[in-house]
Nucleic acid binder design. Structure first.
Lengths: 335, 335
DNA sequence: TTGAAAGCGATACCAC
DNA sequence: GTGGTATCGCTTTCAA
């Protein structure tokens, strides 16, 4: 078996120029400012280029222009079901704009996130930080060097898209209250998470309005396992309903409760967050829908605008949420 | 609010050289081959560099060396639960090796995949193509230009990591046979998928050994919805058990059957593939475990070896699968 | 409308 | 050990 790379180095602009009988600069223009050339020249060059399989070398271009045509997206956990749709949307939007994306997984670790940013920032035109765990000072320092868009992190003066859980959470609390619940638990997410704080406050505020008691519980990790492990704690409280930080935690809780013979909605009411599991839990999960794909697309759009404008608008872009009632919420069990 | 980027263009090697009173080449060596320089010179240059905040420009370096420190990972669908763990593993392994990853989503479209490869190939040292949908000729042409590792695509002579479903599928078929099933359906995946073909053949072969009848069904798409829609078809056959292309299809089938009042395992036995849903279906899904994270890690390792060796080993790296019996398989319902 | 030539910021080969 | 210089592939004045 021949394992040599067939000599064929990618064709360079020079070769296209020679084959087309024009100067390198002309080839360059054919790709970057076709308007400056005669229609025929452009057509001819493009066809020659295509037949040679020529693709402009982004790296060389970057060296000369300072623009890389890349953006980096950093998330805390690729495998958390909230992120794949978001990643997909960012990728699609970037691709549509002719850009490529670097993906970084910080694994919820600020130090790792900082390292990633360091390595990536020299190769990109901008950064999208989803659920950024960096200290606010670090973020601001960065924003002095590079266009940045934050997702679900609220730093005044910076471009950010925020999924505002408050409306959905408020609806959920009222929904539970109307069903007759008088004590609900909030199964929290990471303390450093803006979304978690936002949700926690919304639960507290709305509950107070309705005279509902709230018990706060902090699982070890915002995961299926964390939710499952929290079941015994939930069981030991007076809460007849639970609002979980996200769908994964809710699903774990459902499983943990079921293991103890407590089934939703009869034995306990459960509300998730994000709606990334659709009807795929059993029973189908009542949840607060977040539209991560929308957040991803918007973040990329905002970044492109920032790139075009040459400066940050510093605006917060709010995305709404809504309660989706499925089968895990019902009348409270009196105990 | 001040939105200006702080003017400071990053310092260049030239400036460091001037400030340190040495030549540019010396500065370069201080960073890349310190052994060639006197200890003092290196120390002095490094300190000057540090005080100026100098960081070597990766892009310029890449242009001149041809090594970028990046690899690209292309998948057909980021949101398919099989891929996030794989992506995560590739990212982690790349990071450990000091490399960054580009992520491309081909959206199952060969043309899009080709475009991505074109844009990316000039910025990376190598490519990992997961479930590649490109024509074999195109892949081979690429491998002449760039180190490549394939995942779940079998092209002779190329480095590839293959999750071999055959053992797991065989175990599943025997499991069903032992339970007393005599007719099973295979709910197929995309015809162009190597994994699907491999699974289909394994079902057929093992079934024949046991004298089991097989009915083949091709859903519209390998998705939850596709599985759900296939329920009515499954119901219309004599099959008392189903092996689905993947867990997502199996989960959809479970839901579709349940909607018709048929519940697993009493009314129908269902086996999934990949084990990416763990116990999160209801009932917990019997499935053939694939370890996508292992495939991702190994692909990156193989790529790094290929990079180090300067040539492809051309080897196929097989990953095993095993049957995990949970709650969706049981005795056949006689009808 | 097109061509020639000077960089962009590093590396690496060849001298000294 | 260190200094000069060609080179990587492309963009971008400046002339023609």
């Amino acid at each position: 078996m021949d394992t040599m790379k067939s000599s064929a180095a990618p064709p360079t602009m020079q070769q296209v120029a020679r084959a087309a009988g024009v100067a390198r600069s002309t080839v360059s223009r054919a790709f970057t400012k076709p308007g400056m050339l005669s229609t025929e020249t452009v057509a001819q060059i493009k066809s020659v280029a295509a037949s040679l399989g020529y693709v402009p070398n982004q790296v060389a271009r970057a060296l000369s222009t300072g623009r890389h045509g890349n953006v980096a997206l950093i998330v805390p956990d690729v495998a958390n079901p909230f992120f794949p749709p978001l990643i997909r949307a960012v990728e699609a939007a970037a691709d549509a704009a002719g850009m490529c994306i670097f993906l970084g997984d910080s694994d919820e670790d600020p130090a790792r996130e900082a390292r990633l940013v360091g390595k990536l920032s020299a190769q990109v035109d901008g950064l999208i930080l989803a659920s950024c765990r960096l200290a606010e000072g670090a973020i601001q320092a960065l924003s002095g060097r590079l266009p940045i868009v934050l997702i679900n992190r609220d730093v005044a003066g910076m471009d950010r898209v925020l999924i505002d859980s408050a409306p959905g959470v408020a609806a959920a609390v009222r929904h539970l209250h109307e069903l007759g619940h008088r004590c609900v638990a909030y199964l929290a997410g990471p303390a450093s998470s803006w979304s978690n704080e936002r949700r926690r406050i919304a639960v507290l505020d709305t509950a107070q309005e309705s005279g509902l008691e709230v018990i706060q519980i902090a699982p070890r990790r915002p995961s299926y396992e964390g939710g499952m492990a929290a079941a015994t704690i939930v069981r030991s409280t007076r809460a007849t309903a639970v609002i979980a930080f996200d769908d994964l935690v809710a699903q774990g809780l459902l499983a943990g409760m079921a293991r103890m013979g407590v089934h939703a909605p009869a034995g306990i009411s459960v509300v998730g967050c994000d709606d990334v599991l659709a009807t795929r839990t059993y029973p189908a999960l009542t949840t607060i829908a977040s539209r991560p794909e929308l957040a991803g697309r918007m973040a990329m759009e905002v970044l492109l605008e920032q790139l075009a404008a040459g400066k940050s608008s510093g605006a917060a872009h709010m995305l709404n949420t809504e309660l989706i009632i499925r089968a895990t919420t019902g009348l409270p069990l009196l105990r």
